[in-house]
Amino acid sequence: MVEQIIKKSQFEERGTLFETGAPVTCSVSIDKVIAVGFGDGSLRLYKPDAEPVVVHAHNGVILSIAANESHIITGGQDGLFLKISLNGEIEEIYNFGTQWVDNVAAYEDMFLCSSGKNVYIWSGDNNKPKLLEHQSTIGGIAIDQNGRRIAVSCYGGVTLWRYEKNKWKSSKFAWKGSHSKVGFSPDGKYIVTTMQENELHAWRIRDKASFAMSGYPSKVKSFTWAGDNPYLVTAGAREAICWPFDGKEGPRGRTPLCIASGGQENATYVETLPGEKAIFAGFKNGMVLLSELSENPNDVLIQSPTGSEISNISISPDRSHILVGDIKGKVLWSPLWEQ
């Protein structure tokens, strides 16, 4: 075999590489910490100028993670829905037994999770969760920017729940097919889902006008929002495909920006650089690029190809550090700026 000499990026040179041995499954940024969930049930808390703290949270894969201002919440294949402090103290919110806790979300003192076809909401001091039922297994959940609406995706579309007069009221946004991840646009006007097919679907909430964003060579596993327009930045293709959501009609009839074009394989994870018109794209071969939201973007190499699919990219809340994780358990933790 010919030994390939792969040049390290400046981020790999000044950062630290951790071999954790378990797939990186999810992450959330909170305070100065990036909390990362792993396939062996452990949670690691990465902070600048400190060794990562390992928390033995679940007995099985951590499937989903979220946070409010003070706590991390996690859902796992062990059926546990946990609340974890930044010191690593674990409190069990609920035990679903043999049922996986597939999705979690948090907003102030409201904690949500989905298990099977149901969404459970804990809020305030009430120990008994509110139950929202759905017709099929839930693919994803999202809370809007004000904590008043919850979007739940499953087979056949999205159910939008609004909190009005002390009740959760539902409204259906239908589109045939299986919907997984779901999110609100930053202005709260659109709902977007990833689908089992190689495409995304979006609805304008006001009139339920819906449209597909298709043409991807593989499944879209990740999306994020970036820039002021804003752009919906998506994985699933050789480049990061960015759909403009400004104007009345959003991306309909318009061509997307294609940036981060240095990858030889499809992008599997995308993340925005908060406050900048720039995004990170991670690829199936382990490469990570930083790219500008422009017609002729400059790309910066964050991580050279490693051979393992990127499963997570996270930026610390103060933008000082980047964390890159892959499906083999490698974690790159690096200062984002020269010191």
Binding site: G21, P23, G39, D40, V61, Q77, D102, S136, T137, Q196
Partner: peptide
């Protein structure tokens, strides 16, 4: 026709460390 739950569960099992 495909089994949606199977896609989800097999995907989940592939995230195991072992």
């Amino acid at each position: 026709t495909v089994r949606g739950d199977l896609i989800r569960i097999l995907g989940g099992l592939m995230k195991r460390a072992d």
